[in-house]
């Protein structure tokens, strides 16, 4: 084989491999979605959400929902929103610091810590939250118990490293001429970050927020040890136990007694998928609105 033929073969083989990998990914996603839609669509309806309770009574909390996913839906929604409220500002600020202000040495030390944190298995984070309650009970808060706030805090810790890393990468990936533009126009370091760099890195940062939201919505191990239960109804306060969609899917699938119950699990999974989709859409919308406002 001549060297030209070898080069051509390597070219074709690389293309085929990349094409195969990309197609495989798309097929896998489609297969999972297709399976979920196939098994779950039939169960979608008022009954899946609210059981035998009228939707108006359920939404207002006038009557408790016993056999619908509504409390779990509300629990997951509150969990995601709360943990993102805690983690997103801190994560983005951390990313800005690492990219724009930190020395090289601190960047590598903190970067290692962030990677280490991203690698912590979620069950360990759950255990951390659980231990925190144990410590609190034995010291100055004997009434402390696992609850929605604790779970949100632990989830926030879990998703924090994604936010820090994506923000840092989005900012440090910006070209030099953009980085120097602000200072050359008399901006301070913060003005440059705020008015030039952050708007330019907005989409990269958004991808981190979406990744973090998805992780917050799907994680089961953390909440398992920090306050989720199979039946809690709507949480009345942040100090309450709560239900969550991934945990509901887990116990429906693990303890189903009929195929109808298992189908409910698929229906619930489909709802979780739609909820995360809606949250991604919201994040996307917020980012675009801010971008539009910035660009005017």
């Amino acid at each position: 084989m001549t060297s030209a033929q070898k080069r051509r073969l390597a070219d074709v083989a690389t293309l085929a491999l990349c094409w195969g990998a990309a197609t495989g990914t798309v097929l896998a996603v489609l297969a999972v979605m297709g399976f979920l839609i196939c098994r779950g669509t039939g169960t979608l309806g008022m009954e899946l959400f609210f059981g035998q309770v009228h939707w108006r009574d359920a939404l207002t909390g006038a009557r408790p929902v016993f056999d619908g996913l509504w409390p779990a839906f509300a629990g997951t929604l509150i969990l995601v929103v709360l943990s993102c409220l805690m983690a997103v500002p801190v994560g983005i600020a951390g990313g800005i610091y690492l990219s724009e202000y930190a020395t090289k040495r601190f960047q590598s030390v903190a970067g290692f810590a962030v990677d280490l944190m991203a690698g912590i298995p979620s069950i360990v984070m759950g255990l951390f939250g659980f231990s925190m309650v144990v410590v609190l009970r034995n010291t100055f808060a004997p009434q402390a118990k696992t609850c929605l706030l604790l779970a949100s805090l632990c989830i926030a810790l879990l998703i924090l490293p994604y936010l820090v890393r994506t923000t840092q990468n989005a900012l440090s990936g910006l070209p030099d001429h953009l980085r120097l533009l602000g200072p050359s126009l008399g901006f301070t370091a913060w003005q440059n970050t705020r008015h030039v760099l952050l708007p330019s890195a907005g989409r990269g940062i958004l991808s981190g927020v979406i990744l973090a939201m998805g992780r917050a919505a799907e994680d089961t191990a953390v909440i398992l040890l920090t306050g989720v239960v199979a039946r809690a109804f709507l949480p009345r306060s942040l100090w309450d136990k709560f239900e969550a969609l991934p945990f509901r899917i887990y116990y429906l699938a693990a303890e189903h007694r009929s195929s109808a119950e298992l189908d409910q699990a698929f229906g619930t999974a489909l709802v979780l998928l739609m909820l995360t989709g809606a949250l991604f859409g919201t994040a996307f919308f917020i980012q675009r609105t801010m971008e539009h406002h910035w660009k005017k």
């Binding site: 030039v196 330019s200 660009k295």
Partner: peptide
């Protein structure tokens, strides 16, 4: 290089 900002 012209480094205009992606604004109006």
């Amino acid at each position: 290089h012209p480094n205009v900002l992606p604004f109006s």
